[in-house]
Design a protein around this nucleic acid. Structure first.
Lengths: 143, 143
DNA sequence: GCAGATACTTGAGAATGTCAACTATCGAGA
DNA sequence: TCTCGATAGTTGACATTCTCAAGTATCTGC
């Protein structure tokens, strides 16, 4: 069993720190908009007329979980469920005007916070992107 | 309100992808060892004779939460609570032999998986570390 | 038209987290 | 010394997020 590589440990800690800070910022914006974290994630990842099942796919969770999340968004008047004309089992999720507003607010605010966090010279930002993309692409090959 | 910077969005997505994969691997190892994810995090972040309050600090959570987590670890025979001699309010957490074993297993397995994920030439690994460290250090200055 | 697959909902229950209230103990100052 | 405010830990109530199993409605292929 190989001794632990301190560089790997360091990279792991740094990766968690960065993503933790991003998440923390996102959750704070969500709370300002009277959304639970998961509701906010769902709102951002919603493509306008899309079946609930698609959202379950994006969120990597069970369909029954999506029912509850969408209940919350519907209760707040941000989305509506519309039966799909082509398949009556399917319900399409449609953003209301207020839903679009909060979604835009969430995305622009999250972008502002992320920009402050990734506070590097443009060349370093691109280099960081390339290094992370290499890792992610190799990882997706494997899966 | 500035239009969104696609590079920032990309960096955000990549950071979540990497940390998500790390977490997923860690949780899988925890499950093999009959530990919930949070119990495993607690086990790894335990410094051997330390008050429960310290663990709450490391985990960034309420003290009442730590009570339940430690209950689980104690039930599994991995830690014991020992009253601190200097301050009878305090209980020190002590790892049992089995606690040490699972802790080591967790850390080495997590390191192995992380090493496979951060599959880059050594120079790139160090460069990635430096870029992330710059971000994290600047962030900690601000807080 | 029937059998099996699919979309969504419901209900039970686990894991994680917060907050408020309580007990026990500590430390500092009148 | 005694008392008051702070601190460590626990408990109980509750919110959030998640999974699984079961049920309903609908679709598709034979």
């Amino acid at each position: 069993m190989a001794a632990e590589d301190p560089l790997i440990t360091e990279l792991t800690d740094l990766a968690f720190h960065v993503s933790g800070r991003l998440q923390q910022g996102f959750n704070a914006i969500a709370a300002e908009l009277d959304l639970t974290p998961v509701q906010a994630v769902a709102l951002v990842n919603l493509r306008d007329p899309a079946p609930m099942r698609d959202l379950a796919g994006v969120l990597h969770c069970d369909a029954s979980n999506v029912t509850g999340i969408v209940d919350g968004l519907e209760r707040r008047g941000l989305v509506t469920r519309e039966p799909a004309p082509t398949d009556r089992r399917v319900k399409h999720l449609i953003l209301t005007d207020e839903g679009h507003r909060r979604r835009n607010h969430l995305m622009t605010e999250a972008n502002t916070r992320a920009e402050a966090l990734f506070n590097l010279p443009p060349a370093d930002r691109r280099h960081l992107r390339d290094l992370l993309a290499t890792i992610v692409n190799a990882d997706q090959q494997h899966s």
